[in-house]
Design a protein around this nucleic acid. Structure first.
Length: 644
RNA sequence: GCCGUUGUAGCUCAGUGGUAGAGCACUUCCUUGGUAAGGAAGAGGUCGUGAGUUCAAUUCUCAUCAACGGCUCCA
């Protein structure tokens, strides 16, 4: 007998070789029908795999992350079985679960798969799922595994085998499909009741663009049709929040073929938001001791040779223009210009820290396939600043920048984000990263220390650093689930020396400053793209391009509407009159859909009492008020930048 | 940049080897209406661009540009 310990601490005895499924059955048949896998001593196992020793056991169902992953991993195998039946000879690479479903990478041997095929594959999968095919686990020796895939001529699985040791190799089979796989899997295919293959994509083998491109099929499956329907409805809702759709509807920005890809044109409504954001940034930075500067959009080649950007990023800069025998580049970053401002006058330790801020316009020749609405563009306006400081000042300055992030996040009600400490990859020193191994370690520790001391939660990721130093990136997600860096706070130990930046320290010796690059509001493009999705287009009052719309009941009250408009304008409130020849219901509907925060309905009653009938977007009728009282209230709301 | 898909009116989308349609938006007229769509009429597109096949191309083929879904990349 063996002892099984349950999550609640209960211990029960079972025969040696019992399975998680047996355990579940001993509790209830209903539970057994839902068990997908089991957590045995912290490892996820097949529910049907014999347990031979005492163990901690947690039964995993659809409601557990690991249960879901197992379900989707098994679905990938089911899809592979269907693909193999339709495309004999197909070779598979890997097929893992992902955040919302699974994919499988495959080499179709020159054949093409179409959207029509996806539907056929779904039907085939459903047919196979109904057979309740059991996922069978088999331990196999490395030599047998190598022989199996050599006979099959499958170079991909042979490549995978290279990295595995004898004794840790398992095969899983269901129906006619056998795959090299560490598992685990759900008990049988019958659990998979609802199937949607979402798209076909190319994916480089091992994620390296020099390698062959494989075909990747993405899909998602569920234990019931209802859950699939809910998922599809959720996607539909997300699409409604897509900043590209909302940006067009609300007249925020537009793109035009004749201007060029990735070059957003800010329309009047979008420009109002930009100006409000810049006002916020200016106020905040001034209070935090920053000084504003303005620099040109271009610079000579030598500037970017000195900064060290050119060898790393030449391909993603717009090609240079030649004038007077000199090459000029459109600036892809503001730092070199700012460094030159630092260098323009001699500095002493008394000038430090020096914080130079600019909403700088940068141009980056991003790869065509990378462009994505406002989130990834070729012309961007960065909430940029560079802080030149001594080593002693660094921790306080770095923390102050982090505090500024948090202050902004509070204003915008941003609570879903992750701070990521982005580190260098030692294997890519000299290639992607400045070849200063010790300085890397030193500054990375410096940043890590600041984060730990200030108890700021963060994750660490290797290979995401800037070429000149480590950074803290704030990661956010767009409405359709793509991950983006919203803000960034970077340490630079390289450029100060490269530009021979110096200040005279207390001992009257020249010293090179540390530099912090920071952009808490990211770029206007990405930030407004994010805000559109964050607010679903319903901007808070202070950011809303149009704050108040006046809706006269009929044109008899147009004169009164004009006096109301004038009062609002005198208080710097962005307001308009809906002077169309339409009924009030129609005007309300259109103004609601345009997401204007306040509507003021004015008719005979209001005119006689010098009042306005207030209607709030999404909230409906709020009753009447004296016009000055209303103005006083919303002026305060605007000034406080209330996010609701 | 790579793989795949798409491109018809301002927007959302039908449609066809014989040079095009709907709804909304827009304009005009009627209506002057009290909290999410009043009525009528009208205007608007060389069907992304270029070439080829054809008696004839928006439709078929190729190229190109752009967008979209991914991959790679992101100072």
């Amino acid at each position: 007998m063996i002892k099984i310990t349950f999550p609640d601490g209960a211990i029960r005895e079972y025969a040696e070789g019992t399975t998680a499924l047996d355990v579940a059955k001993s509790i209830s048949e209903g539970l057994a029908r839902k068990v997908l896998a089991a957590d045995i001593n912290g490892q996820v196992w097949d529910a049907t795999r014999p347990i031979n020793n005492d163990a901690q056991l947690k039964l995993l169902t659809w409601n557990d992350g690991d249960g879901k992953s197992t379900f989707w991993h098994s679905s990938a195998h089911l899809m592979a079985e269907a693909v193999e039946s339709m495309f004999p000879g197909v070779k598979f690479w890997v097929g893992p679960p992902v955040e919302n479903g699974f994919y499988y990478d495959m080499d179709l041997g020159g054949r093409q798969i179409t959207e029509d095929d996806l539907h056929k594959l779904e039907l085939k999968m459903a047919e196979l799922a109904k057979k309740n095919e059991v996922y069978e686990r088999k331990e196999i020796s490395k030599s047998d595994a190598v022989r199996y895939f050599t006979e099959k001529g499958d170079e991909y699985k042979l490549d995978l085998l290279q990295g595995l040791n004898d004794g840790e190799i398992t095969f899983y089979s269901q129906g006619n499909f056998t795959d090299l796989c560490r598992g685990p899997h759900i008990p049988n295919t019958g659990f998979i009741k609802a199937i949607k293959l979402t798209n076909i994509a190319g994916a480089y083998w091992k994620g390296d663009e020099k390698n062959k491109q494989l075909t990747r099929i993405y899909g998602v499956t569920f234990p019931s049709q209802k859950e699939l329907d809910e998922y599809l409805a959720m996607l539909e809702e997300a699409r409604k929040r897509d900043h590209r759709k909302l940006g067009k509807e609300l007249g925020i920005f537009t793109m035009d073929d004749d201007v060029g890809p990735g070059l957003a044109l800010w329309m009047p409504n979008g420009t109002i938001i930009i100006e409000e954001l810049e006002r916020l940034a200016k106020e905040t930075e001034q209070a935090a001791g920053y000084k504003r500067v303005v620099t040109p959009h271009i610079g000579k080649e030598i500037l970017y040779i000195t900064s060290g950007h050119l060898p790393f990023y030449q391909d993603s800069m717009y090609p240079p223009m030649e004038l007077e025998g000199q090459k000029y580049y459109l600036k892809a970053m503001n730092c070199p210009h700012h460094h030159k401002i630092f260098a323009a006058q001699p500095k002493s330790y008394k000038d430090m820290p020096l914080r130079l801020a600019e909403y700088g316009t940068c141009y980056r020749y991003e790869q065509s396939g990378e462009l994505f609405g406002l989130m990834r563009v070729r012309c961007l306006h960065m909430n940029d600043a560079h802080i030149y400081c001594t080593k002693e000042q660094f921790a306080a300055e770095f923390k102050a920048v982090n505090d500024m992030y948090l202050k902004y996040f509070k204003i915008f009600g941003i609570d879903k984000y992750i701070m990521r400490l982005s580190l260098h990859d030692p294997e890519k020193l000299g290639l992607k990263y400045i070849n200063e191994p010790e300085l890397w370690i030193e500054t990375e520790n410096l940043v890590r220390q600041v984060m730990i001391e200030n108890k700021i939660p963060f994750v660490e990721v290797k290979g995401e650093g800037a070429f000149y130093g480590p950074k803290i990136d704030v990661q956010i997600w767009s409405a359709i689930g793509r991950e983006f860096t919203l803000a960034t706070n970077q340490v630079d130990f390289a450029q100060g020396r490269r530009f021979k930046l110096e200040f005279t320290n207390k001992d009257n010796h020249p010293e090179t400053p540390l530099i912090i690059h920071r952009a808490p509001l990211g770029t206007h493009e990405r930030f407004i793209g994010f805000l559109l999705e964050h607010y679903a287009g319903k901007f808070p009052l202070w950011l809303s391009p149009l704050q108040v719309k006046i809706l006269p009941i009929s044109d008899k009250f147009m004169d009164y509407a004009q006096t109301v408009l004038q009062s609002l304008k005198n208080a710097d409130i962005r307001a308009e009159i809906d002077d169309r020849n339409e009924k009030i219901g129609k005007k309300i509907r259109d103004t609601e859909l345009a997401k204007v925060p306040f509507m003021l309905v004015v008719g005979e009653k209001e005119m006689n009492e010098n009042k306005v009938a207030i209607r709030k977007q999404g909230k409906g009728d709020l009753g009447t008020k004296d016009i000055n009282e209303f103005i006083a209230e919303i002026v305060k709301e605007i000034k406080d930048r209330k996010s609701e």
